[in-house]
Each structure stands twice: as C-alpha cells, then as structure tokens.
Amino acid sequence: MKSNRLGHWLAILIGTLYFLVPLAATFEFSLRKVRGIYSFEAYRVVLADPQFQASFSFSVALAVVTIVFGMAIIVPMAYFVELRLRKLRPFIEFVTLLPLVVPAIVIVFGYLRLYNSSSLLPLTNSSLGTNFLLICGYVTLALPYMYRSIETGLRSIDVRTLTEAAESLGASSGTIIWRIILPNIRSAMLSGAFLTFAIVIGEFTFASLLNRPAFGPYLQLIGANRAYEPAALAVMAFMITWACMGIIQVVSRNTAAARH
C-alpha cells in the first residue's frame, strides 16, 4: 500500500511539472527582452501597441456578444426541451455535440462557401455581416459547453415543478423564464459564459479565415515577427484563462454552498 501511494505522488508530480515548467519557462522568456537583465519591457511594448489594444478590445466585444447571443437562443431552447419537448432531446444532443465532431476549420470553410459574395445570403460582403458570421461561428464553438452547463443547471432544479407552481399562481411563460428559471440557473449560465469567454478570446481559425482583426490573428502575427513579445502575450492569455476558470470555480462553489 505504501509503495502504491508513492506511485500516486509520482503521477501527481509529473503532472504538476508538465503543467508548471512551460509556464515558468514562458514567464522567464518574456522577461528577457532587454539583454542581460530581466525586465517587463516586452509587456510594456505589447500593452503600448495600438494594434494590441484594438484587437483585444475587438475580441472582448466579440466574446460578450457571443455570450449574449448564445444564451438568448440556447436558454429558451434548453428550458422548453426540458419542460415539454423531451422528444427533441436526442436531436439536440446530436446538434450540440456536432461542433466537437466537425472541426472548426471545416465549419468556417462551409461558411465561406455558403455565405460568400455570390451566394443567396452574402454575409461576407460587409464587415458587419462578417462580424455576425464570426459570432455565429463562435456560438457554434461554444455550443457544447454552453448547452452542457445550462442543461446541468436546469436538471439540478426541478424545472417542471417550478414551472407548474408558477403557472398555478398565474405567471406567464415569459415571467416564469425571467423571474423563476433564470435566477435559479444563474451560476450555470455564468460558468458557461466564462468558459465561452476563455474559448473566444484568443480564437484563431475563424477570425483568421474570415479576415477579422481579432486577438487570435494578432497573436499569430506577433508570433511570426517578434521574439519576446509572444511569450509576454502567452503569459497574459494564460492569466485570462485562469481568471475565467477561477471565476467558474468560485461561482459553482458558492452555489453548492447555498444549496447545502
């Protein structure tokens, strides 16, 4: 038994090293910009770059719109499927898993062929249309995660009983969703939202192929042309991912605590 536990510690240790060493290396590398000393020069250069500011705020805006748009179509769907249209569930399961089956690059390829300037719905003709297309792409990317967390949230409360109780008190469907269901799945929605944010913020494939000035293509561009700035950007991207995951942890832990 004792020697077994040693093996388990070893597995955890290897995992920890694999996790930490690249981070430490990246951080160390990002400090090397000024020859001979460690400095935050690379960070300063990156943060002062107008292109960084533009692309980053563009991606933040994209992420926010993606979350709002995604929630707006997924939450009512998930609610009514759980409540009345259980027959649809296998189909919904299939659709929400599809983005894991069809690679992003294939989906965006389809967009480019289906919505190009010579098609019936030439979304790529205007930058507004292309932005819309990009957001739709991001919603599909986030779909498996958003749907899963909302579905989990809906299942953990008894949707049917809550709805019937509200209906018996005379509430309308809109009131029920807005006043009863949403507050009860808030933490599930927040988890889905922050996961979506983490996925969208540095996304490369969609943004690059749709030619939008987002953060992902900017990262790639810097990576191809600079030496130390990419490391600084990687550290920052990692911190964003951490923040999103940390918030999800806090949110779900608070909910769990509230339920007990």
């Binding site: 996790f19 690249p22 290396a25 160390e28 990262l219 950007l233 991207a237 995951m245």
Partner: peptide, 17 residues
C-alpha cells in the same frame, strides 16, 4: 485551466520552453 489553454499562446509557451 490547462485543458483550455490551447491555440496560439500554447505554441508561444512551448517555443519559450
């Protein structure tokens, strides 16, 4: 966290490593 840390920044991290 690590499973979501992919894409371009991951490439940078490994270049630095």
């Amino acid at each position: 966290v690590a499973s979501q840390f992919a894409g371009v920044p991951l490439a940078f991290a490994f270049l630095a490593t």
